[in-house]
């Protein structure tokens, strides 16, 4: 690949007990692009995704072999400090997961962990990231209300602001709009379009049209293997594999 890649997966296999979920995958994820991982349920896209920030480690009975390089550094290497890996990547879950604290504290959470104590600086940064997620105007008067009181759409944007506040290089979205109404979905999609100028975004999605609308690069997975990957145009208009062709046409699901 001519372009610079930010994540390189090399011979990655993952299994739970006797069940092999990912079968010897290798792929380069391009830098500063929005990459969408698509494929039918159970194809291993979420598993692949969870290997990027090693959230997979906490699963009982999991075995990972192979390498995942982030900026050239193998995150499964021996001397790797996990928190250092994880804060390079902001995570958006399927359903928004506001932390059980105020709106302000949600955004400040990661920064505080990193040792930022100065109240003025913290307040300024919280404002900055809430603005970045287009939430500031809606929420500036109730920053100290519990985050759980927000609408689902606002919660998801809050999670985005919270993730951005730890200054990641990569944003990971695990079907980030699947629990949202159409308008909130549009908000998130709009944000992703803006953010991909400055960040690498990797998202898992079930919605083909969403992948087509947003993604620059597509990874198509089936039964734990990567069937095909390439620029969005090519995957949708000129797929090389029969399986890909069928999938993007909606022949099977």
């Amino acid at each position: 690949m001519s372009e610079k890649s930010i994540i390189q997966v090399k011979n990655l296999s993952v299994s739970y007990g006797n069940h092999q979920v990912l079968k010897n995958l290798s792929i380069d994820i391009p830098d500063n692009k929005l990459t969408a991982i698509i494929g039918p349920s159970g194809c291993g896209k979420t598993t692949l995704f969870k290997t990027f920030n090693r959230l997979i480690d906490d699963t009982d009975g999991i075995k990972v072999s192979g390498e995942v390089l982030v900026n050239g550094e193998n995150i499964y290497g021996k001397d790797i400090e996990i928190t250092h890996i994880r804060k390079k990547m902001g995570l958006l879950n399927q359903r928004p997961t506001p932390l059980p604290m105020s709106i302000f504290d949600n955004v400040a959470f990661g920064m505080r962990l990193q040792g930022l104590k100065d109240k003025k600086e913290l307040a300024a940064k919280v404002e900055h990231y809430l603005r970045l997620a287009s939430l500031w105007d809606e929420l500036k008067d109730r920053l100290h209300a519990p985050a759980a009181a927000l609408s689902i759409g606002q919660q998801q944007r809050l999670c985005l602001a919270r993730g951005l506040a730890v200054e990641p290089e990569i944003i990971l979205g695990d079907e980030p709009t699947s629990a949202l109404d159409p308008i909130s979905t549009q908000h998130i999609e709009q944000k992703f379009k803006e953010l991909k100028e400055d960040y690498t975004i990797i998202m898992v999605t079930h919605i083909l049209r969403q992948a087509r609308r947003l993604a620059d690069y597509i990874v198509f997975m089936y039964l734990g293997e990567i069937i095909e990957h390439g620029p969005t145009d090519e995957i949708f208009n000129n797929p090389q594999q029969k399986l890909t062709q069928d999938y993007v046409k909606g022949v099977f699901n």
Partner: peptide, 24 residues
Amino acid sequence: DLRDSALSLGATKWETISKVIYRK
């Protein structure tokens, strides 16, 4: 997902438990 969120913000396991899980 809540655990994952806290961890992905750079929290250690203990920070996740003490600051998020106990609170929740």
